[in-house]
């Protein structure tokens, strides 16, 4: 079953389209990195996924249902600023969670906060940025949902807090097998935790698929200047100097020409490569269409 499925999804604010003709299919259990330049539509997609917005065109289904009413019990959302009731105590926030969610795991949430040394009697506005993020994520995890949506969960956190937040989230994923959709514009820190990538560009999906497949398919080819290698590949970006040619390419098979060397790329390189050529016609990659049988 697909965790998240968008068909012809579009969202317009007055005259501008924030999302357009988005087709997306995310299998259950993936940790999805939603990346893209500012204004690409990441937040809009996330808000659509948790029912805060309604699509202008098309549909977005979460585990087969549109995320309104009863289906809201299946998704949890942590917005970018971690909005919580500042005047409440931590215990009162847990009470809110318990009263507003029939499946709420109060004991689990208490344990987690105790592990993190977040005192129950502290008021939310007294918490540090990292603690606030931890509390917001704890509440989302304790809701016992199938999909957690996190908008820039690591923004405004120091490196140690980032690490702790990510570790806490990954523990929850390991325990429950939930699907996570998280956005960030710092791709480097998503590398280790995410296994699925969705790159948005100007309101459209530019790249989508399992990170392993994407990394396997893309290579940086370097070879003599003024030449192109033979073989089956598509060039996404290129850099030509007097001495050599560098091609950012998606390969269908290895390049046989020995004058060319193929370097493996990091996720950051791939994402940046696609971001630099937003008009590239190589999207979405064919992995999209093949996903259903895997799920």
């Amino acid at each position: 079953m697909t965790a998240l499925e968008a068909t012809g999804l579009g969202k317009r604010y007055r005259d501008t389209w924030a999302l357009r003709e988005v087709f997306l299919s995310v299998p259950r259990g993936r940790v999805v990195a939603l990346v893209g330049p500012n204004g690409a539509g990441k937040t809009t997609l996330m808000r659509l996924a948790v029912g805060l917005h309604r699509p202008t065109t098309g549909h977005l289904r979460v585990f087969g249902a549109e995320p309104y009413g009863e289906a809201l019990a299946q998704v949890a959302y942590v917005a970018q600023d971690k909005p919580l009731y500042d005047e409440f105590t931590v215990n009162e926030m847990l009470n809110v969670g318990r009263h507003l969610n029939p499946r709420f795991d109060l004991a689990g949430a208490r344990d987690r906060l105790a592990d993190l040394n977040i005192p129950g009697r502290a008021r939310v506005h007294q918490l540090s940025g990292g603690q606030r993020a931890q509390l917001a994520i704890t509440l989302a995890v304790a809701k016992r949902v199938d999909l957690i949506v996190l908008d820039e969960p690591l923004a405004s956190l120091d490196p140690l807090a980032r690490h702790e937040v990510m570790r806490g989230l990954m523990m929850a994923v390991a325990e429950t097998g939930l699907t996570v959709l998280l956005s960030s514009h710092v791709v480097a820190e998503l590398d280790e935790v995410c296994d699925h990538l969705v790159l948005l560009s100007r309101g459209r999906v530019q790249v989508a698929g399992d990170i392993e497949d994407i990394l396997r398919a893309h290579r940086m080819l370097t070879g003599p200047a003024g030449m192109m290698p033979g073989g089956a590949y598509e060039v996404i970006g290129e850099d030509r100097t007097e001495r050599q040619t560098s091609l950012f390419a998606r390969l269908r098979e290895p390049i046989p020409d020995p004058r060319w060397t193929a370097h493996e790329l990091s996720l950051t390189d791939v994402v940046l490569g696609y971001m630099r050529s937003p008009m590239s016609t190589h999207f979405p990659p064919p992995v999209l269409a093949e996903r259903d049988d895997v799920a």
């Binding site: 948790v50 805060l52 809201l72 019990a73 998704v75 507003l100």
Partner: peptide, 9 residues
């Protein structure tokens, strides 16, 4: 964004 994404409409 918090209140409207709990299990109630």
């Amino acid at each position: 964004q918090f209140a409207w994404t709990q299990s109630f409409s």
